[in-house]
Write a protein that binds this DNA or RNA. Sequence first.
DNA 1: ATATTTAATGCGAACGTTCGCACGAACGTT
DNA 2: AACGTTCGTGCGAACGTTCGCATTAAATAT
Lengths: 338, 338
Amino acid sequence: MSERVTLKQVAAKAGISYQTVSKVLNGSNQVARETAERILSAARELGYRPNTMARNLRSQRSWMIGYSWIPTPPNQVNHILDLFLTSMVQEAEAAGYHLLPFPYQEGEEQVETYREMIDSGRVDGFVLSSVEYDDPRIQFLLSRQFPFVAFGRSNPEIDFPYVDIDGGAGMRMTVDYLIKKGHRRIAVLAWPENSRVGNDRMGGFFEALNNAALSIPTEWVMRGEGTYEFGLKSGLHLLSTSPDQRPTAIVTLNDTQAIGAMVAAHELNLTVGSDVDVIGFDDAPMSQYLYPPLSSIRQPIREAGRLCVEQLIKLMEGESLIERQILLNPKLIIRASA
Amino acid sequence: MSERVTLKQVAAKAGISYQTVSKVLNGSNQVARETAERILSAARELGYRPNTMARNLRSQRSWMIGYSWIPTPPNQVNHILDLFLTSMVQEAEAAGYHLLPFPYQEGEEQVETYREMIDSGRVDGFVLSSVEYDDPRIQFLLSRQFPFVAFGRSNPEIDFPYVDIDGGAGMRMTVDYLIKKGHRRIAVLAWPENSRVGNDRMGGFFEALNNAALSIPTEWVMRGEGTYEFGLKSGLHLLSTSPDQRPTAIVTLNDTQAIGAMVAAHELNLTVGSDVDVIGFDDAPMSQYLYPPLSSIRQPIREAGRLCVEQLIKLMEGESLIERQILLNPKLIIRASA
DNA sequence: ATATTTAATGCGAACGTTCGCACGAACGTT
DNA sequence: AACGTTCGTGCGAACGTTCGCATTAAATAT
C-alpha cells in the first residue's frame, strides 16, 4: 500500500521543520527562496500530497455537497440523473468540492438524515431535488441556516434559493405552436393535482389557451400517473370518438405518456402527425427514435446542474447571491409527431 | 449554524473526562453502568454526533469509494447509471461507506487522477467501470495493491477482482432462441473489434451458430458504432435484398442499433416480428414501448452494483474473496419484435 | 558598540477523535 | 496488616494539517 508521505517526511528530507514546509506549499512568501526551492523539490521527489482528512479537520470544512434523489421505480426511467449528476460533479470538482450521494429516505426519517449529515460534519451544503409542496427539508435547512440550493420550486410564499426550469413556459410554447398550426381542439394528459411540477406546467397550458381565447371540455384534461399505461388508456379514450368530436392534438407532461398516446392512435389506425398531433415533455433520449419521432420539450439539465452547484458554492463561501432564484427556459423540439 | 456538539461538551455536562465519553459511546464495558447512563443521556440531550472528519483522521480511513464513469455523449443514453449508482450507494451506505463520484479523465491524466485520490487519502477503494483491454488503471491499482473491483472484464491473462455480466451467454440465449424458432439466416450488428464488451458478446453469437452447425456470410456481421444511425443504415443494407437472400433475423449489441434496424424494416415495408425478427441488447427502459415492443437482453445491473461494492468492502477490510471473479447471467426478454 | 528593525524559521496549539497505559480506590486474600 | 486483583477513570499521545506567535540571526539605524 506504500507508506504515506506527510509533511514530516518532506521536512526531514529538506532538513527543516514541517510547519515551514506547510507554509511553502501553501505559498507563503515569508520563506527564503533557497529553502523554498529545496522544500519544493523534496516534496516533488517524494510525491507529497496533502492528506485530505487532516486538512478538512483543520479547516472545519468537509468540502462535500450532499445530494440524494428518488430511486426510479421499476419500469420507469430517469433520463435526467446522468446529465444532472455529471454536470454537478464537474462543476463541484472544478471548485475543489465533491459530491456526496446518499440514499433517499421517505417520510419522517428524511429530515433526520439531513440533520445527521450536518451534525456529523459530513457535508457543507446540499442540493435538493424532487422538491414538492411543503417540503420539510426546506423548512429544516432554512431554520438551521444551512447552505442549500433546490433544483425545483416549492410553495411560492417561502423564500429560498432555487434553480428551476420554467415548465409553464414550455407548455405555453407547445400550445402556442399547436394553435399557430391551426389546432383548436387540444387535449392534455396531466398529473395529479398535488404535483407541483405538474401544476406549473398546467399553468402554462391554460395560459396559452386563454391567450388565444380557446376553451376545451374539462374531460380533455385527463389526470393520472406519468406512465405508458395511463397514456395508452387516455389516448384510446380521447381518440375513439368521431373525427369531429375528438381532439386534434394531445400534449402530455412527459414522454412516457406521449408514447402511450401514440400507440393508442396507432391502434385506432390514426396516423400521428396528420390525424392527430402529439407533443411530449422531457425529450427523453429515445424519443427521437420513435416512429414517428416525438416532438417534445427539452430541458437544459446540464445548465441546471451547473447552476445549482455554482449557487451553492457561493452560499457555502458566505457570498450573497445576485439572483437567489433562477428560472431556465426549456426548448420545444419539433419532430414528425406534430 | 448552531455550535458543534463535541465529546468535550458531553463530558462537561456529564462531569467526566471526554475520553471516557468516547469509550462509552463506542460501547466499552469498562465503565460503571451508572456513569455510562449519565453520559448517554447527556449525549442524547445535546444531540451529539461524532465528527466524521476527526474520526476518519484518527482511523486513517476515509470510508469513501471512488467511482467515475464516461460521460454520455450527446444524443446517447446511459440506461445503466441510475440503477448502478443507486444500488452502489445503497450497499455502501448500509455498510458505513460512501460513494465519491469524480469526473472521468481520458488518456495520460486518468491514472494520475486515481493516484491523486489515493495519495491524498480521499478514498479507500475504487469501483471501475468502462473497463477496456489493457486498462492502465488496473495495472496501476494492482501495482499499488490498492483495493478495487472492476465492473467488467479486461485482458484474460490479468488476474484482478471483477463483477461482470456474461454478454456471451446473453447472445447465446438470443441466437438459440431464434434458431429454435426456425431462423437459419441471422445477421448481427456488432461493434468495432477493439471493444472488449463487443467481443465478449460476439463470442456467444458465434458459439451458438457453431453449436447449431450454422454459418452466415461474413458481410452479415456488420461492425460499427452502437448508434441509431448505424442501425438504420445497416438495416437498410441487409434488408433491401430479395426475400430469399436477406436475413430473417437481426440481432444487435444494443437497443439503439436495434431501433435503427426496426425503422429500416419499417421503411422497406417489412413487418418486424413476422417478415424479420429483431432482438436488441440492454433492455433500455423505453424498448418495451416501441412499436412493436423490442425483445432484448436484460442485464442484472442492480445486482452487479451491489456485488461490486460488497466485494470491494471485503477487500478494503482485508478479507479475502471467496470468488474473486463473478459473472452474472443476463435474461432474454421476449416481446413482439421476435 | 548598542539598539532597533526585518527576515527566516521554529514551535506550540488546535481541529475532534480513539487508544492504551497509568493511576487510585475498593475489594478480597493470605 | 500487608499485599495482589479488579474495576473505574484520567491522561497523554497520536492521526496530519494550518495558524499565529515566539525566537533567532542578520541587517540596518542610532
